[in-house]
Simulated scan of single mutants.
Amino acid sequence: MFILHNLTIISLLFIGLFIEKRWKLSKYYISPALAGGMIAMIVSGILYYFYSYTFIPNEWVVCFFVTAFLFSIGMKMGLTYQKKHIKHLFYLFGFSTFILAIIELIAMILFKNNSFLLQVYNSQTFSWNEEWIFRIQNWFSGSLVFQFHFSLIIVFILTPVVIRLMRNFQFSEMKPYKTKDFHSWKLNAVMILFLVTIFALFLKNMYLDETLFIFDFVISMVIGFVLGRRLKTRDSSQVDQWISSVLSAGTLSLYGFIISMIFISSVHVWTGWSWNIVGLYSIKLILFTLLWIWVSRRWVKNHQKLVLISACWAFTLSAPVTCMNAMHSVVRRHGPADQVLLLIPPVILWLINYPHYWLLAFLYN
């Protein structure tokens, strides 16, 4: 089943890449992953409504893609690491924690006596993984599953439109960025990525399964960082090709992760539709979107800031995977933004889980 589900996601990924290249969707901030994911959502809806069949990708497929992606991020961090990055990481971590605390406190003040509204408007959708759901579900009276998945789907769908509204610099001021085709990879580089991913999955599930928020992708990211530091001292065309192969494979892994999550979320949305949650969440969506567009119109002057502000918008409404999609949509349109793109994943995918969990535990447990 793992191989079949993997092939399904990879097929959707390459369909998304073809569609994005054929119709130049990147200029509309539509990533290949979003294009492939929308096809997955339509297919899942047809299967459910016409054939009463649901297809959900295996959780190991999702874990494999995100773990492989974080290995490439860790390696890129190791290659570009400077002492100032620690300071920037600390600032981003503090800012993210501050946002969580403010939203949670506002929700507590406004909806303290209404558990259903509190559940819809608080910050528990800011993290998404099975371990997170397992640990916090008992603190809330209603199921969190539909709200998590609906927030993912709606933020994915709205990402191209919202980014376009956030952009506050003229087309002539942009530096056109031509997306490089995925070139021929070096086989040994791809094999290293594959083996590290398998090792991280094995280590997590065999020895670290009960350790709080030490995910398999955290293990692979640390390994990637160490490897990147070692490779930084070497300078040759062979090493550059090896690094490019890993980074390209990591980007494809991110796309596979996004498509997998859209596929899973669409099934939960089709099968668990709730008008109450949809209506209430839509109010939250409109308010936060207008707020971030207002901030963006006054602050964003280049695409690096657009990457950051689009991630902030997605972060305050849904899980980290939507942030990654929003950031990569901007990068594919306007060019690299490594200072932002390399700092956000370790914070929103991993570190923020700790203060977020302790905050919710303090308030609800």
Rank of each mutant, 00 (worst) to 15 (best):
F257L: 03
Y28L: 07
G78Y: 08
V347N: 12
L231A: 07
K305H: 10
S31N: 08
V218C: 13
I39H: 07
V196P: 01
T289K: 08
E210W: 01
M41I: 10
F126M: 13
T80R: 13
N58S: 14
L105Q: 14
W292M: 09
S151M: 04
N122P: 02
H303V: 03
S318P: 00
G16I: 06
S236D: 15
L252K: 06
V347H: 09
F156P: 05
F65V: 01
L110T: 04
L363T: 03
F146C: 02
W292V: 12
N325Y: 07
L92K: 09
Y53A: 12
S220Y: 08
L359S: 03
G36K: 05
S274V: 02
L144I: 03
V196W: 00
T159K: 01
N114M: 07
R164T: 10
L13Q: 00
F288T: 11
S318V: 02
T271S: 12
A361L: 13
S260T: 13
S318N: 02
F288N: 09
T67Q: 08
R167N: 06
S52E: 14
H356K: 08
N6M: 14
Y53C: 06
T179A: 14
I46Q: 04
G228H: 06
E210R: 13
S96G: 09
C312W: 14
F215V: 07
E20F: 04
P160Q: 02
I223T: 11
L89Y: 11
R230D: 10
H328E: 14
L158S: 09
F64Q: 07
S26P: 00
V155I: 09
W128R: 05
I348K: 00
F116Y: 10
S274K: 13
L195G: 01
Y49S: 13
S282Y: 12
K112R: 15
W275C: 10
R167G: 04
T233P: 04
S115M: 12
V330Q: 09
V347I: 15
R332L: 06
D338V: 13
M75I: 07
G94R: 00
F315T: 02
R234C: 11
K87F: 11
S44D: 10
Y354P: 05
S236Y: 06
S127A: 14
F116C: 01
F213Q: 13
G256V: 04
L363Y: 13
K87N: 07
